[in-house]
Design a protein around this nucleic acid. Structure first.
Lengths: 155, 155
DNA sequence: AGTGAAAGTGGATGTGG
DNA sequence: CCACATCCACTTTCACT
């Protein structure tokens, strides 16, 4: 039995469709159709196929965190101690809204976070929250002074 | 004179609108209107206001990298040497499609990348590409075995 | 896989409260 | 800020190729 995440092949038309919608998810299908050169109905069918293949995970309105006051971005590496129950830690991390990514990683840290916060004090406060989680022994953090690339995989 | 990135206040209705569209950017405005309890025209006006305030950066179709064979995610810290011309390095990094994020950071590394690749060999190949960039003296990488959280700031 | 047409729905806008 | 009404555009489906 194959894994559910089997890879799939897509042709040039699929790529054009995806590239357009990756830039603006609200582009009308008919507009895509015009630029790709096939009918709207065909675009529609292809999108359904791509969705069924699980290649499309959805669409998101992208909100600018800066305007909401979240001007700071930091990465936090977390060391576990022996009492750490990883799934429970994850569950608790999900309740910390400033944590926008969480990875299990190889290397020095057990898990690795990306955090968005308002300022240094806010980061300190978040670090304190993290320290209070059972199983977390220590954290190490570094701040992103500037993010220059933010994109999806190229298709 | 204020910066362009001044923060802005949004009310509960704005939040509801944004939350719905952050989950699915293609939700029809009239559907949002029904759930929020005001007219479609009002939703439309608010969205224009939020766009003008630069709070909405756009919308994206989210493509599942796994299905395209990009099953591996890694973080790469880069050390510069004295010859490094940071803006030029960034410019060259933008040409490496597997680099999906790039941050200037405090701490041991000068810049910090998030990279999506197909397997270990692919990662090695990318690391070699990075090493060839003038000004890059050394890289350190660690692999994300599993990403458990991926979201935007909570509003 | 793609087309074309038909029926229903949504987007965008102006007027007015 | 919002509602209503309007017009035009878009989405979705289906029979056909």
């Amino acid at each position: 039995m194959r894994r559910k995440t089997k890879t799939v092949t897509i042709d040039g038309i699929d790529k054009k469709i995806l590239r357009m919608l990756m830039e603006d998810a609200r582009t009308p299908i008919l507009e895509v159709a015009r630029q790709v050169g096939i009918s709207g109905a065909a675009i529609h069918q292809r999108l359904r196929k791509l969705e069924k293949a699980n290649l499309i995970s959805g669409s998101q309105l992208i909100v600018n965190p800066t305007i909401l006051g979240f001007t700071m971005c930091a990465f936090v590496g977390i060391y576990f101690d022996k009492e750490a129950d990883a799934p429970l830690v994850i569950k608790l991390l999900k309740r910390v809204p400033e944590v926008v990514e969480c990875h299990y990683t190889t290397g020095q840290w057990n898990i690795f976070l990306k955090v968005r916060c308002k300022n240094g004090d806010h980061l300190v406060q978040i670090l304190n929250t993290l320290q209070e989680i059972r199983g977390v022994s220590r954290t190490e953090s570094f701040i992103s002074l500037n993010q220059d690339i933010e994109r999806q995989v190229k298709i």
